[in-house]
Amino acid sequence: MTFSAPTIAPSIPEGIGMIAVLGLLAVGFYALLASRNLIKVVIGLQLLVKGAVLALVLAGTANGQLQVAQSLAVTVIVADTIVAVIGMALAVQVRRRTGSMDVKRLSTLRG
């Protein structure tokens, strides 16, 4: 007995898909630029990567190469998770050393 995934016709309006992608990218960029909390910066990075993953899958769907897009998206998700882990480790250590997670207070990194 073999399991077969249900076939659902992928249908998303092109404009809505692209607006979702660019909206996630815009929100992620905003969090990167405007946030001063290190963990908020990592959250912004996560949103950016979610937009990139959605863009990859949309592109694979549109071009008929969904499997390649999926393999690339998996790599991106793994890399993003590792970046989040290291970013949070940095945030925790910065908090322990400086007493704050404010990006502006990271003056000890000045050369």
Partner: peptide, 15 residues
């Protein structure tokens, strides 16, 4: 859920 509906089942589960 959006990725699943697009047909990217593996990425949806991992996400």
């Amino acid at each position: 859920v959006l990725l699943y509906r697009l047909g990217a089942y593996e990425v949806a589960v991992i996400e």
